[in-house]
């Protein structure tokens, strides 16, 4: 286990405070979570931000999933499956939230989807875990924890909304409780 429930909560809180510090209350802020654990994290960050007395932060989601094309030997790239962003992104400061930042391919697809929707003023990236080994020139603005896991291993973020427990686990295969 890389993070227990307390440590995970502290990471989320720290990310929220860093976002709050970097964006004054006058700025129009929106959080976009990547489904599904990124969306849950975005909700948690929004809850903390909304306790700071700043105007309510709006939250939307992008559904970006990897798919594999069986006809080709190369793996497919993550792509947009759907979105739920019931507000305009024009001139807004957007924070994209994901659970694990790894190759950067999901983030690239998310940036393309957001650029397609409007003209945001800026897009920042928050990730609970950055496990390095990027394949694209993507970096996170807010990182909960850097975990250098070897290539064959996987990093699982478990959240109580989905998994019944808050934890970050490094494992070879899918854990039982997952």
């Amino acid at each position: 286990m890389a993070l227990d429930a307390d440590a995970l909560a502290r990471c989320v809180k720290r990310i929220a405070y860093e976002i709050h510090e970097r964006h004054s209350a006058a700025e129009r802020l929106a959080l976009i979570g990547i489904i599904r654990r990124g969306a849950n994290l975005a909700e948690r960050i929004a809850t903390i931000l909304n306790q700071t007395g700043r105007p309510l932060v709006e939250v939307g989601t992008l559904d970006i999933s990897s798919y594999r094309d069986d006809d080709k030997s190369t793996p497919g790239d993550p792509r947009l499956l759907g979105r739920n962003i019931p507000f305009s992104l024009d001139d807004r400061n957007v924070v994209l939230v994901d659970d694990v930042l790894y190759t950067g391919r999901t983030v690239r697809a998310a940036l393309a989807a957001l650029a397609d929707l409007g003209r945001p003023r800026s897009i920042e990236l928050a990730a609970l875990v950055d496990r390095g080994r990027r394949e694209l020139p993507i970096r996170a603005d807010y990182v909960g924890k850097n975990i250098a896991a070897p290539e064959g291993q996987r990093v699982y973020v478990k959240l109580s909304e989905v998994d019944g427990v808050d934890a970050v686990v490094i494992g070879e295969t899918k854990p039982e409780a997952f």
Partner: peptide, 19 residues
């Protein structure tokens, strides 16, 4: 750079991009 990557991805799937 974001736009250039979007155009690249219309061409295929690179193994990686370094800037």
């Amino acid at each position: 750079v974001q736009r250039a990557m979007t155009l690249l991805w219309q061409q295929g799937r690179p193994a990686g991009v370094k800037l």
